[in-house]
């Protein structure tokens, strides 16, 4: 079964067309990489899947587990297992990481008619995961993303991903702004989360993440369309030659 299927997807942001007919499908357990130059629409694709209100679908379809996503609210998509790792996670002053994680986790459990975890049980549940990402425990009491470095924000996104265990994870430049050690940690985290139950879409500029997290397929998004798909060799070619040769193909 396809976890995600996009058919001729057209999206505008503030009346400006950004995606102009994206076709893409992702099967359960697969990890795909989405590459492309700046402004090609990668983040818009991520955002429209998560239901950001500014992104309007003007034509085509997006199906998540054979269900049309368009009418579904962002929170319901999240509770149904769609997770977006943000490129620039927003700061929320005064709200601790722990609080947000607990609210999010219990919102999902309520949705699936499971009992909520109380504060103590939840804390224990979290402890293992923070350790795994090399995050100190006091981290949990800090306000969401406030005063975090770029790398810390990305690790925080990964922590949420580990906790919420989505079916479809869309990671928007999870590797940007990370040093080598942090990148390795993130890559290990992603690999640990790969399973036959879970599909992932990695949006990235650089193949260096893909070296550590081998994708099943690589897509290139240009001009709001998937121009080319292939395997790891496509990522290599892009690393060596850039996007120029593709632009020629477009014109």
């Amino acid at each position: 079964m396809n976890i995600l299927e996009l058919r001729n997807l057209h999206v505008t942001v503030m009346n400006k067309p950004i995606l102009n007919g994206v076709d893409l499908s992702l099967k359960a357990g697969e990890l795909h990489a989405l590459m492309g130059p700046n402004g090609s629409g990668k983040s818009t694709l991520a955002n429209v899947l998560a239901g950001r209100p500014e992104c309007r679908v003007t034509a085509g379809q997006m199906l998540y587990r054979e269900r049309d996503l368009w009418p579904i609210s962002p929170e319901e998509r999240a509770r149904e297992g769609i997770f977006l790792g943000f490129q620039n996670p927003v700061e929320i002053p005064g709200v601790s990481n722990l609080r947000l994680l607990k609210e999010a986790y219990n919102a999902q459990r309520r949705h699936h008619r499971q009992p909520e975890l109380d504060a103590v049980a939840f804390r224990a549940h979290l402890r293992d995961r923070t350790a795994q990402l090399g995050l100190p425990e006091e981290w949990l009491l800090r306000p969401v993303n406030a005063g975090f470095s770029g790398g810390e924000k990305k690790r925080n996104e990964l922590l949420q991903l580990m906790l919420l265990e989505p079916r479809l994870a869309i990671l928007d430049e999870i590797d940007s702004g990370l040093d080598i050690d942090a990148l390795t940690l993130v890559a290990e985290g992603i690999n640990a989360l790969r399973s036959t139950e879970r599909s992932m879409l990695l949006i990235t500029h650089y193949p260096r993440l893909l070296d550590q997290v081998p994708p099943d397929r690589v897509h290139v998004l240009m001009g709001g369309r998937v121009m080319l798909s292939g395997g790891m060799e496509l990522a290599r070619k892009l690393e060596q030659q850039g996007y120029g040769w593709l632009e020629e193909m477009v014109t």
Binding site: G51, R52, S73, E75, A78, F86, I92, P93, V95, E103
Partner: peptide
């Protein structure tokens, strides 16, 4: 949007942000 993407309803998200 960030909170809703994590599964909180609009009302829960507002309440959480106001609390913060």
């Amino acid at each position: 949007f960030y909170c809703r993407q994590r599964g909180l309803s609009n009302e829960e998200a507002v309440s959480l942000i106001v609390n913060g």
